[in-house]
Design a protein around this nucleic acid. Structure first.
Lengths: 242, 242
DNA sequence: CGATCGTTTGACAAGGGTCAAAATGCGTGG
DNA sequence: CCACGCATTTTGACCCTTGTCAAACGATCG
């Protein structure tokens, strides 16, 4: 009975992530739960937000993966960053913000409207920390593309993605979902799909990853982390909860 | 007489940039002017803000150039973006933000504390737009590093920097200051100084730039812009003032 | 007038891109 | 349940941009 209830009430990625970002009050958790009843669906490959769209409301991703991307004149579409369950959309600060990038669903994606947060509330703090984390990951993506070679880039990105998914409660025994093609991974990492393929094979040979049925396992994350000097994300120094 | 007064009261880069971002009230312009009396100096090469520092106050650059950078274990120091006069520092959103990057003075830099802006005021809007512009330029830097080769990267960056300086009233007859070494430019663009040097020479041969005494002139910005499909920054669609 | 920093030039190596095609997987309809 | 068509993964051969290493040259400053 308890088992069933536990199963049924498994906290959503959104609630998991947010209650780790700030100590949410029960009422705030409840507001999140209410918001999650109001899901909107975007099928895979759909452009959820177009570049330059006015931002009407703040939303959160509750399931599925999306990519922030730019479409270029030459047809290429570099992916600037990946949005995972629990991540926020449309957090611009000023009155009439417009979307600085387009957002495209990689898999089928469900989003919900974000409940308003009273200034100074734990929920507001969680939103702000989420934004700060996003900035952190943007910077990480930046340095990744500058200084790491293909092998290290992939290793570093896998470690980061694993950590983000774990933070939203989406890893199972070290395994985590990776529902993207090698081509999209290539667009994310600034490589060609051919080269991603060769590099993944090398990592497999080196016993650093196992990938099956869109599930990834890193058997030796420590070795990977040493390899690329990976440092986990922190919003605030000295905060052990993040 | 009028000429003298005009000269003496030449608006600062900060005031110029901000009154173009939002229609500031006279009182707000005055507050900016007051703030500018309170300058703090950082000599060239000084680390103005260290990675992880707590952000105590919001400031603005009023003269000189700085770079947001990361120092890496291998000693390299990729520059993530350049801060020009009129740009803001420390605009994190949450209560106890820490600096996500270190900031280093490229030339001697003067900064001033930012006056507080009432919510909903034109000044607050100007701040928000400045933040949005910064995000825009971060994204531009991003795509620059991904898809453009060395020649295009430099061309694109020069066009953007020229536009930003013009926006702060710092260009004179198409000429603009470029007070950085080729090595720092290389760090900014993800290239080596050797390659920057060769590429600049090529652009000079092609008649696309003239560089003397740390002043840059782009004789044919249109040709450059076509070359790299350069698109000027806009914070809001349909806003002709930006 | 050294000393130091920045620019310029040369020779060479290599990581990754491009092009092309084969192999494998997978959903759909018959 | 099978066959077809399309998407994805894999492999091979070749080439080009950029990095690396090293040294010479030029300018600026105490």
């Amino acid at each position: 009975m308890t088992g069933l209830r536990l199963l049924a009430s498994t906290p959503s990625p959104l609630a998991t992530r947010f209650s780790r970002l700030a100590p949410l009050a029960p009422a705030e958790l409840d507001a999140l739960g209410q918001a999650e009843r109001n899901q909107r669906r975007s099928p895979a490959r759909r452009e959820m937000v177009a570049l330059g769209d006015p931002v009407r409301e703040r939303r959160a991703l509750v399931s599925g993966w999306a990519g922030r991307q730019r479409v270029l004149a030459d047809g290429r579409r570099p992916i600037l960053g990946v949005l995972l369950p629990g991540d926020l959309l449309g957090m611009g600060q000023h009155r009439n913000p417009i979307a600085p990038t387009s957002i495209v669903a990689i898999t089928e994606v469900m989003t919900v409207p974000l409940p308003a947060a009273a200034p100074g509330s734990a929920l507001a703090e969680a939103y702000a920390r989420s934004v700060a984390l996003e900035e952190f990951h943007n910077l990480a993506q930046f340095t990744r593309l500058r200084r790491l070679d293909a092998y290290e880039r992939i290793a570093d990105w896998l470690l980061e993605t694993r950590e983000r998914l774990a933070h939203a409660g989406l890893t199972v025994g070290g395994h985590f979902p990776l529902p993207m093609t090698q081509e999209i991974l290539a667009d994310t990492l600034g490589l060609t799909s051919v080269h991603v393929n060769r590099t993944l094979q090398a990592m497999r040979r080196d016993g650093l990853l196992v990938f099956q049925d869109k599930m990834m396992l890193l058997p030796d994350p420590e070795r990977l982390a040493t390899l690329v000097e990976y440092r986990p994300a922190r919003v605030r120094l000295g905060d052990p909860t993040l």
